[in-house]
């Protein structure tokens, strides 16, 4: 061995150490800079569908833009929606997704809610400000685990806001039934249009079903109001005064109970 071999090896490894250190610090800084190019572009509900008799699933998309040079992997979000009283209204989660570098993706988010719960059914006809708590886990640039918690007010728009009914004068029909005119009005503040049918049933005070009818709704876009009427056909002699009107909204994807109305 040459008497300077160790010295030369030591010098070379010394330079490798310095250059590696500089490269690694540069890499870490590039991760920090690149991460600043990730942007949350909002959550947009796109559809709703019923699951079983009382569960509603709202499908939404979480828009994320990553204009950095490293990918975001293993993105997963869990969500809780609470009413102003702090009661749980809905839960949601995304599938585990990846966000490649220099890309924009919409990550599907499913929000589940139980419509049989009174605190949830109130939201069918009342706007509110819900509190959204989201927990996000992801890994950036393969090496950096990131955990995000987000608390945000989420304005809830009711699909049948201010739902109200007014009643006309009943008339006896030749087929032995009673025709009872009904007029309904409401506004749709939900981000998805109403476009289905309102099924209505009239029950007497002792719970006997007197009859009913249906009302086809036109497409009622978000922010639009509806006012329209139909005639309900009731059995003659059935005492519906002081009874209850139950309402069931159905469209190809959703079956939704509107809180019952008392018949004057």
């Amino acid at each position: 061995m040459n008497h300077l071999t160790l010295y030369r090896a030591g010098r070379v490894t010394g330079w490798i150490s310095i250059l590696t250190g500089l490269a690694l610090v540069g890499f870490v800084l590039s991760i920090a800079v690149s991460a600043s190019y990730i942007q949350y572009e909002g959550t947009m509900p796109i559809s709703a569908r019923s699951l079983g008799s009382s569960n509603l699933v709202i499908s939404a998309e979480v828009g994320l833009s990553n204009q950095g040079v490293y990918s975001l992997e293993g993105f997963h979000m869990s969500l809780h929606l609470l009413n102003p009283q702090g009661e749980l209204v809905a839960t949601g989660s995304t599938a585990t997704s990846s966000l490649p570098a220099r890309s924009t993706v919409e990550i599907p988010l499913s929000i589940h809610t139980d419509l049989s719960s009174p605190i949830v059914s109130l939201l069918v006809t009342h706007n509110s400000t819900l509190k959204a708590h989201a927990w996000i886990n992801a890994t950036y640039a393969t090496l950096v685990p990131v955990h995000l918690t987000l608390t945000e007010d989420y304005p809830w728009g009711a699909p049948f806001y201010g739902f109200s009914t007014s009643w006309g004068t009943p008339s006896n029909l030749s087929n032995g039934t009673v025709s009872l005119p009904i007029h309904v009005s409401f506004a749709n503040y939900f981000p998805i249009p109403d476009y289905g049918t309102l099924g209505m049933s009239v029950f007497s005070t002792n719970g006997t079903r007197c009859g009913g009818g249906s009302l086809s709704l036109p497409v009622i876009a978000t922010g639009s109001s509806f006012s329209g009427g139909t005639h309900l056909h009731l059995a003659q002699g059935c005492d519906y005064a002081g009874g209850t009107l139950t309402l069931l909204y159905t469209d190809p994807l959703v079956t939704l109970e509107i809180p019952p109305q008392v018949i004057p």
Binding site: G14, S17, T20, L24, V25, V28, V144, H147, T149, L150
Partner: peptide
């Protein structure tokens, strides 16, 4: 809106270890 981001940089610190470990070898050779 309150956003809290928690970032675990442990792996990055471990990655940075490569440089001083090579430096150790260099020191030993010297």
């Amino acid at each position: 809106r309150v956003v809290t981001a928690s970032i675990d940089g442990g792996t990055l610190f471990l990655l940075l270890l490569i440089a001083p470990v090579i430096g150790l070898v260099s020191g030993a050779l010297m």
